[in-house]
Deep mutational scan, measured.
Amino acid sequence: AVSDRLIGRKGVVMEAISPQNSALVKVDGETWRATSGTVLDVGEEVSVKAIEGVKLVVEKLE
Rank of each mutant, 00 (worst) to 15 (best):
I51Q: 04
L24F: 08
S22E: 15
A50N: 06
G8H: 04
A34I: 04
T38A: 10
M14C: 10
E62N: 12
D28M: 07
V39N: 12
V12K: 06
W32H: 14
V46D: 01
R33W: 15
V48S: 01
L61K: 06
E52T: 08
K49Q: 08
R5E: 07
K26Q: 11
Q20V: 09
R9I: 04
R33C: 15
W32L: 10
S47V: 15
K55H: 14
E45I: 14
E52V: 12
T31P: 05
G37P: 10
V25C: 03
W32N: 08
Q20D: 13
G53N: 05
A16L: 14
A1H: 11
S22L: 12
G53F: 03
K49E: 05
G43S: 03
E15G: 07
R33F: 15
I7W: 00
E45N: 08
L61P: 05
S22G: 12
V48Y: 00
A34F: 04
P19F: 10
V2R: 09
R5W: 08
V39D: 12
A16Q: 10
V57F: 07
V46M: 01
A50I: 04
K10C: 13
V27I: 13
T31H: 12
G29K: 06
V13N: 02
D28A: 07
V39Y: 14
V46N: 01
K49H: 06
V27A: 01
V12G: 01
N21K: 12
A16D: 05
I7P: 03
V27N: 01
R9F: 05
E62T: 12
L24N: 05
V42D: 03
A23E: 04
E52Y: 08
A1D: 10
R9S: 07
S3K: 10
K55Q: 14
T38I: 08
L61E: 06
E62W: 09
G29P: 00
T38L: 07
D4A: 11
N21Q: 11
A50G: 11
L6K: 03
E52Q: 11
L56G: 02
R9T: 05
A1R: 12
D41Y: 14
E45V: 13
I51L: 07
G8K: 02
L56E: 04
V27W: 02
E15V: 09
E62C: 13
E15W: 05
D41N: 14
K60D: 03
E59N: 04
L40G: 02
A16G: 08
G37W: 09
D41S: 14
V57Y: 07
D28S: 05
Q20S: 12
S36L: 04
W32A: 09
V57G: 02
T35K: 07
L61V: 12
A23D: 02
G29Q: 05
V54H: 14
A34V: 09
R9D: 02
A50Y: 07
L24I: 10
G53H: 03
V39I: 11
G29H: 04
A50R: 10
V13Y: 03
